[in-house]
Computed example of a mutant assay.
Amino acid sequence: MKKFMTLFLTIGILIFPMGIGSLQKARAAEPIKIGTLLDLTGPMAFLGPLLKSGIVKALEEVNYTVAGRKIELIAEDTANDMNVSLEKTKKLVELDKVHIILGPLMGDAQMAIAPYLADKKVLASTFYSGTGELHTKFKNWLNYPTTLVGMTIPLGYYAAELGYKEIITLGGDYEGGRGFIQGIKLGFEAKGGKVIQQIWTPVGTTDFGPYLSMLKKADCLAYFVPAPPEQVRLLKQRKEFGIKIPVLGTILTGQLVDPILAELGDIAVGLQGQAVYVASRKDPLNEKWVAEMTKQFGHPPGDFESNSYAITKAVLAGLKATNGDDSFNKLWPAVLKVKINTPQGPLAFSQEGVAIVNGYIVEVKKKEGKYYFDIVKTYEKVVDPTMKKK
Rank of each mutant, 00 (worst) to 15 (best):
L170I: 03
T201H: 09
G183S: 03
Q182M: 13
L134I: 01
L234Q: 07
Y309A: 03
Y211T: 05
A222E: 02
L102Y: 09
I199S: 11
K90L: 05
K194S: 12
Q274N: 15
E133Y: 03
H299K: 15
L7M: 11
A114Q: 02
M82L: 11
I71H: 08
D81A: 10
S125A: 15
Q351Y: 08
L347P: 03
Q255N: 14
V66W: 03
L212C: 13
I20P: 13
M151L: 15
L148R: 14
A291Q: 14
Y372C: 05
R178Q: 15
Y64T: 10
P259Y: 03
A222V: 05
H135C: 11
K139P: 05
V269H: 04
P300E: 00
K2Q: 10
G19P: 00
V225F: 07
Y277L: 05
V225R: 03
K390Q: 14
I32D: 02
P145Q: 04
V225G: 02
G270N: 09
G103L: 01
H299V: 08
L7Q: 04
P301N: 02
D207T: 13
F127W: 00
S350Q: 11
Q255A: 09
P49N: 06
K313H: 08
A355E: 00
L134R: 04
L14S: 06
L234N: 07
N307G: 12
V149Q: 02
I168C: 01
K390G: 10
E240K: 13
G209I: 09
D81F: 11
I375L: 08
G42F: 09
Y309C: 02
D173T: 03
K239M: 11
K137D: 12
Y64R: 13
V269R: 08
I15H: 12
T294R: 10
G254D: 05
P333L: 10
E287Y: 07
T146Y: 14
N80Q: 09
I267F: 07
G209V: 13
Y164E: 11
V122T: 00
L134H: 04
K288T: 09
G48W: 03
D283A: 13
N143I: 08
L261K: 01
N83W: 10
E240R: 11
K390D: 13
K377W: 01
H135M: 07
E76R: 15
G318S: 08
Y144F: 15
E30N: 14
I153L: 11
N83P: 01
E166H: 15
G204H: 07
I71R: 08
C220A: 09
P259T: 03
E287T: 14
T136N: 04
F180M: 15
P343I: 03
G171Q: 10
L142D: 01
K313P: 04
E166Q: 15
E292K: 02
I71V: 12
Q344S: 14
K244R: 12
L37P: 00
G179C: 07
L285D: 01
I184S: 00
E189F: 05
S22R: 13
L221M: 07
F224K: 03
K282A: 15
T312L: 00
K313Q: 10
D219H: 07
K320D: 06
E94T: 06
T78S: 04
G298M: 01
T386N: 12
R69T: 04
T201W: 02
W200M: 08
G242L: 12
G179I: 00
K365G: 08
Y372F: 14
P228I: 12
E72D: 02
Q182A: 14
